[in-house]
């Protein structure tokens, strides 16, 4: 950071170099795992890590204000908004990384490689041997924040105002998009009760987890024959496909019970040993 103060230098301090190589590696790894992680939560967390690394790089480049804003706004607000939406949509739903579009992956790889190589070749071609550093610019108005403020409220004041308008528009837009207008009249209590009497479920829907090992909301209750009933799980979870099927568990438990009782009653050991093996498999 201090090296930035030197004017028209050709190299930075060793400390910054070390920091760049270590954190740069972290940033690339974070970016790659953002792309490659199966679960959206993991992607979001990897991205947050990359952004924090970038915040450090901003600080290293003399952009103190941006570095702080990066942490507060990006990592703090935007990424948390992402996490919130991921939770809303379904935190455990894992994407399959299997490609469905024919040739999409190859095209993407080719384009990515070509693009990256061209970009890097372009940077390499540019003659960027020396750099000025921000020392003079930051010092002119008494510091980085003051310098930025001076620019924002003079030279870029119109752009600033317009971004304000943009933010308000975005707020209103988000409200409009997520707000659902009721398209039909709300049903009265009488109508609801009549509807219920006409439907096949006169009593309340069965609770989740009945006869199952857990009574968690995402575990379907079991019918007397041991098969799970999806009716017992709330609709949102059903639609997300977040039902944990425990029917196999209970059947296995039933078999284990039978086996234990059989042992106790002195039956043949042969079948019992089979049962035991099965139990082991189930346990795995």
């Amino acid at each position: 950071m201090t090296a930035a103060l030197a004017a028209a230098a050709t190299t930075t301090s060793t400390g910054e170099a070390v920091q760049f190589w270590i954190l740069g590696t972290v940033a690339v790894v974070g970016a790659l795992s953002t792309v490659l992680m199966k679960k959206a939560v993991h992607s979001a967390l990897s991205l947050a890590g990359t952004m924090i690394v970038l915040a450090v790089f901003y600080l290293a480049n003399g952009a103190y204000f941006l570095g702080i804003v990066q942490v507060v706004v990006y990592t703090g607000a935007i990424m948390m908004l992402f996490l919130f939406v991921v939770m809303l949509v379904g935190v455990t739903a894992a994407d399959s990384l299997k490609e469905t579009l024919k040739g999409q992956r190859w095209l993407a790889a080719a384009c990515g490689l070509g693009f990256g190589i061209l970009l890097i070749a372009g940077i390499g071609q540019a003659s960027l041997q020396s750099f000025n550093g921000l020392g003079a610019a930051n010092a002119q108005h008494g510091g980085n924040v003051e310098g930025l403020a001076n620019l924002i409220f003079t030279k870029y004041v119109f752009a600033f105002e317009i971004t304000g308008a943009l933010l308000i528009t975005a707020t209103v837009g988000a409200m409009l998009l997520t707000h659902r207008e009721r398209t039909e009249r709300a049903k009265t209590q009488r109508e609801l009760s009549q509807e219920r009497v006409r439907s096949s479920h006169l009593p309340p829907l069965p609770a989740p987890g009945v006869y199952a090992r857990h009574n968690a909301v995402d575990i379907a209750g079991l019918l007397p024959d041991g098969t799970p009933s999806e009716l017992t799980v709330m609709r949102t979870l059903r639609q997300r496909g977040q039902i944990r099927d425990v029917s196999g568990d209970s059947l296995a438990e039933l078999k284990a019970l039978e086996q234990r009782s059989g042992e106790r009653l002195g039956r043949d050991r042969g079948p019992a040993r089979d049962h035991a093996e099965e139990e082991e498999e189930v346990a795995k």
């Binding site: 170099a17 760049f20 740069g24 940033a27 970016a31 792309v35 790889a109 384009c111 693009f115 970009l119």
Partner: peptide, 20 residues
């Protein structure tokens, strides 16, 4: 180290993002 390296890093990150 020259700050140009930051540009290389940015190009790399951009490409990774685009591929994603």
């Amino acid at each position: 180290m020259n700050p140009v390296n930051y540009l290389y890093l940015a190009a790399l990150l951009f490409t990774i993002g685009a591929s994603g």
